[in-house]
Simulated scan of single mutants.
Amino acid sequence: MSAHRTGGKRPGLYPLRLTVTAKVLVFGGHAIARRLGKTGLPDRSIAETWECSDVEGSGSVVADGPLAGVPLRQLVLDQPEALMGAGWSGRHFPVLTKFIDAAGALPVHLHADDEAAQRLEGQPNGKTEAWHILDAAPGATALCGVKDGVRADQLRAALEAQDFDAVLRRLPVRAGETLYVPGGTLHSFGPDTLVYEIEQTSDIQQHAMRWNMEDGSPVGDAEFSSNLDMLMQQVDLDARPDFTPGLRVAVGDGVERVFLCAGPYFALERWRAGTAEPLRHSFATAQILSNVGAPVRVRAGDWSGELDRAETVLLPAVCGEVEITGPADVLFGHLPDLDRDVRRPLVEAGYPLQAIAALGAGARGVETRESRT
């Protein structure tokens, strides 16, 4: 590993299996192992597994092959374009993905947007995220966004009283749907909800709860008041996102591509294939490939391997193409060129710009630019 850090000859990039960080939090359960089938987890209530992470202190490391032991952060610095795509540069991998088991309800909280993160938290970026619902109990709901007409003082009073339904929107949750959650949006989901989450690389957050999510211990009055002070400086009173079923495109005999969400920070797609022909996907930016179905055989160039249930592999941009033998049910998360990777294939499939815009806040910028030309 030291040779890679000190300028020695670096091995070329290949599909990268990464180490996974398991988070033990009070709202977790056993669904990631027992329902998704993920192996290698401790026999404890696991709330989250961080599948691809460059968050400080919880960063992924390459788990196998010639680059085994090299942190993802180091690959970003050493081989930015081979990893992320032509013309890209940055100091960290920009996308974070997780499986989340909300066996219990998550705390009501928000993540700062970029501006607030830089101004108030001393962080380089905030955290916009999206939830793709893998499974949910009948009647499951999520809180997301402040009700229309609620003033800041009303919100603060309700949060102090822990009366969340008085001021927050409660939405029905259904498996297969996706919610794009801009930074600054108050939210929570669970119980009995299993989610794949994609987001900006950040662990920044402000809570509105009187308990700590790490161990359930009480939050004292002074700390609680300070938390609400910071939260109220960061909350977006106008953010009211809604779930979407995504936009489907047939790309082969029994092969379906569903655009789940898309914005300037990430896009997420779900691909399914039968056995008539393999799933083939060409790409120009790094792809976080997570398997949410039965084990599959993955091939990229000279590399071939099996991706088990709930496993993830990072496909560097230099790979360019992947083939997956069906039956397959997989997710691709990536940092998109919105026009090339999202708008163009959806317009060619016949979708109007309004429908594309509903996939995420960033896609609306594409609509605006195009409407002016």
Results as ranks from 00 to 15, higher is better:
residue 284 A to F: 02
residue 204 I to G: 01
residue 267 A to V: 06
residue 203 D to I: 02
residue 61 V to P: 01
residue 212 N to R: 14
residue 297 R to Q: 14
residue 316 P to E: 00
residue 75 L to I: 09
residue 89 S to G: 06
residue 231 L to S: 08
residue 89 S to K: 10
residue 7 G to Q: 08
residue 52 C to P: 04
residue 344 R to S: 02
residue 318 V to S: 13
residue 112 A to P: 14
residue 297 R to I: 10
residue 335 L to E: 02
residue 195 V to M: 02
residue 35 R to F: 00
residue 34 R to Y: 00
residue 3 A to S: 12
residue 356 I to Q: 12
residue 204 I to V: 05
residue 25 L to E: 04
residue 322 V to T: 03
residue 102 A to I: 11
residue 213 M to R: 13
residue 349 A to Q: 09
residue 112 A to H: 09
residue 298 V to F: 09
residue 228 L to N: 06
residue 320 G to A: 01
residue 129 E to T: 00
residue 6 T to K: 14
residue 172 P to K: 07
residue 370 E to Y: 14
residue 49 T to C: 09
residue 341 D to P: 10
residue 362 G to W: 03
residue 175 A to F: 07
residue 293 G to I: 06
residue 137 A to C: 05
residue 325 T to E: 15
residue 257 R to T: 05
residue 299 R to Y: 12
residue 123 Q to W: 02
residue 83 L to P: 08
residue 280 R to A: 07
residue 314 L to M: 03
residue 313 V to Q: 13
residue 10 R to H: 14
residue 96 L to G: 00
residue 34 R to E: 13
residue 293 G to K: 11
residue 104 G to F: 06
residue 348 E to W: 00
residue 172 P to L: 10
residue 247 L to C: 14
residue 308 D to W: 07
residue 363 A to R: 10
residue 110 L to Y: 02
residue 287 Q to G: 00
residue 281 H to V: 04
residue 158 A to S: 12
residue 135 D to T: 02
residue 183 G to D: 02
residue 143 L to Y: 13
residue 304 S to L: 09
residue 322 V to G: 06
residue 316 P to I: 01
residue 272 R to P: 08
residue 170 R to P: 03
residue 54 D to C: 10
residue 355 A to G: 08
residue 265 Y to K: 06
residue 18 L to T: 03
residue 17 R to V: 06
residue 298 V to Q: 15
residue 113 D to P: 05
residue 101 D to K: 13
residue 36 L to T: 01
residue 349 A to F: 13
residue 173 V to R: 08
residue 163 D to I: 01
residue 347 V to C: 02
residue 320 G to F: 09
residue 268 L to K: 09
residue 194 L to Y: 02
residue 317 A to M: 06
residue 373 T to P: 07
residue 208 A to M: 01
residue 23 K to Y: 00
residue 373 T to G: 05
residue 116 A to W: 00
residue 76 V to L: 05
residue 302 D to A: 12
residue 211 W to L: 03
residue 29 G to P: 06
residue 205 Q to A: 11
residue 153 D to T: 15
residue 136 A to Q: 07
residue 240 R to H: 10
residue 366 V to N: 04
residue 96 L to N: 00
residue 147 K to Y: 06
residue 220 G to D: 12
residue 66 P to M: 04
residue 341 D to F: 09
residue 138 P to I: 00
residue 27 F to D: 07
residue 179 L to M: 08
residue 294 A to G: 14
residue 115 E to I: 02
residue 276 A to H: 14
residue 159 L to C: 12
residue 224 F to M: 07
residue 310 A to S: 10
residue 373 T to E: 12
residue 178 T to P: 05
